[in-house]
Simulated assay, not measured.
Amino acid sequence: MDTTNSPANGPATPPPLINWELAATTAARLTPAGPKLSGAQIQAAVDNLRRLADVSVEHVHRITGLSAAQDLRDSQVLIVDRAAWAKANARSFEIMLQPALKALAEKRPDQLKSAATALGSTLTGTQMGAILSFLASKVLGQYDPFAALLPGGPAGGRLLLVAPNIIAIEQELNVVPEDFRLWVCLHEQTHRVQFAAAPWLREHMLEQISELSTSIAAKADTLGERLQQALKVLASSAKQVAGGQEPAGDSTAGSLLELFRGPEEKAVFSHLTAVMSLLEGHANVVMDAIDASVVPTVKTIRQRFNARSKTRSALENWVRKLMGLDAKARQYTDGAKFVRAVVDQIGMEGFNKVWERAGNLPTEEEIHQPDLWISRMDLSRA
């Protein structure tokens, strides 16, 4: 007997929108292993990355002035391969969506069931696996605060450093491995310190993501129509790529995002955009504060890493636009400008007020006009 929605059995069990186990296995199957290394070379790289991850924390503390960097014992650092990164992110995505699915199962079970039927968990699991596979070969590192919500997960989250990707890029750029690895660790460890300095931030982001996913999933009655529109957009832009053309401007990503974003979601999107810009920009400012006394070849690394984006194929550029990665790149730039402007005017101590509570987070408008944030915080240089 089906008791999924029976009141006598407590809260409804939400039907799966995505088969996350299938997503993880699909990603692992599709993702190439990366550079070919001997067992000894792999172990040496893992040991080296772990040591440099530890070394980088002291520099993050010195640059940011955040005392949270002095004690990160409740979080962990993992050196992983591509398949492990994909599996970890599949679990994190599942955790992030659980609150929204639970709320929908309790309040709007018919709409959730309709959405699950329209999507099909097996199909979406395969599609998510393909997305994770693409990302698994690109991501150098990632701080995952939501790992704390996994059974037995570290209370402070975990930092994942994807060794094959770091090694592949350092080989491609022909840079000094020790220097490049420390440079990458500085950025990723900054994210770890951010969440340690603002322990409320994980729950705040989870609430925002839950609100957004609940709102989108609740529109199940139009989901089929929007998916058909999305497929038309994909087909059109894919033909351009197949013909050796770049999809016009940002129309592909923009169209897809607009199909799944209504007036109700725009405010949440705006807030999450501002938060991500802050986090990524702050981490980039820390990287840029490092000079040759710490990373001897840092100038060469910056030049070659920044120039790398100009050599992407039309296919990769299309996929990046489709998945919003170009927007993420802009977040790095916009966020860094905000952080530098604030620090220039009121110093790092004044900027660090941003980590005290959710109300101190900048809005998207303030990211582009730092003076507005400074005024709202009633801050001025002593």
Results as ranks from 00 to 15, higher is better:
202 R>I: 06
189 Q>V: 10
181 R>N: 11
279 L>P: 06
148 A>V: 10
215 S>M: 07
346 I>T: 12
28 A>G: 03
295 V>L: 05
134 F>D: 07
74 D>Y: 14
216 I>C: 02
30 L>G: 01
236 S>R: 12
214 T>Q: 05
15 P>E: 00
254 G>W: 14
49 L>G: 13
326 D>Q: 15
295 V>A: 07
13 T>S: 08
214 T>M: 13
322 L>A: 05
282 H>W: 12
217 A>F: 11
213 S>T: 09
64 T>P: 08
115 A>H: 01
198 A>Q: 03
13 T>K: 06
112 L>S: 01
80 V>D: 07
18 I>V: 08
342 V>E: 01
253 A>H: 07
108 R>W: 14
334 D>T: 00
154 P>Q: 15
339 V>D: 07
158 R>M: 11
191 H>D: 01
132 L>K: 06
263 P>E: 15
52 L>F: 12
114 S>R: 04
202 R>F: 03
159 L>H: 06
84 A>G: 04
318 W>K: 09
141 G>M: 15
284 N>K: 13
346 I>R: 00
382 A>V: 14
90 A>G: 12
172 E>Q: 14
209 I>C: 09
290 I>M: 05
338 F>H: 02
371 D>A: 11
368 H>C: 06
209 I>P: 00
203 E>F: 14
309 S>P: 07
236 S>V: 08
87 K>I: 09
95 I>A: 05
221 D>Q: 12
203 E>G: 09
99 P>C: 15
259 L>C: 10
314 A>W: 08
171 Q>S: 10
237 S>Y: 13
238 A>Y: 06
379 L>E: 00
122 T>H: 02
45 A>T: 08
298 V>M: 02
248 A>T: 14
216 I>A: 03
184 V>P: 01
97 L>N: 05
10 G>T: 10
197 A>E: 03
138 K>E: 15
121 S>G: 06
365 E>K: 15
380 S>R: 14
289 A>M: 03
224 G>S: 12
57 V>C: 05
132 L>F: 06
67 S>Y: 03
34 G>E: 13
58 E>P: 15
366 E>G: 00
39 G>L: 04
211 E>W: 11
235 A>M: 04
88 A>T: 08
160 L>I: 12
111 Q>N: 12
187 H>L: 10
36 K>F: 10
112 L>F: 04
21 E>H: 10
202 R>Y: 07
34 G>I: 05
139 V>F: 15
75 S>R: 11
351 F>I: 01
6 S>I: 14
180 F>I: 07
105 A>L: 10
185 C>P: 07
316 E>I: 11
357 R>I: 08
335 G>Q: 04
126 T>N: 13
339 V>M: 07
75 S>Y: 14
119 L>N: 09
284 N>G: 06
68 A>W: 03
261 R>L: 12
277 S>D: 08
364 E>H: 00
28 A>C: 04
71 D>H: 09
233 V>K: 08
90 A>F: 07
276 M>H: 09
377 M>K: 00
356 E>A: 12
63 I>V: 10
43 Q>N: 13
22 L>N: 04
270 S>W: 01
309 S>E: 09
10 G>D: 14
25 T>C: 13
264 E>T: 13
377 M>P: 00
81 D>G: 14
341 A>Y: 02
24 A>G: 14
13 T>C: 00
215 S>A: 10
362 P>L: 01
176 V>R: 15
83 A>W: 05
359 G>I: 02
331 Q>I: 08
1 M>D: 09
191 H>Y: 05
56 S>P: 00
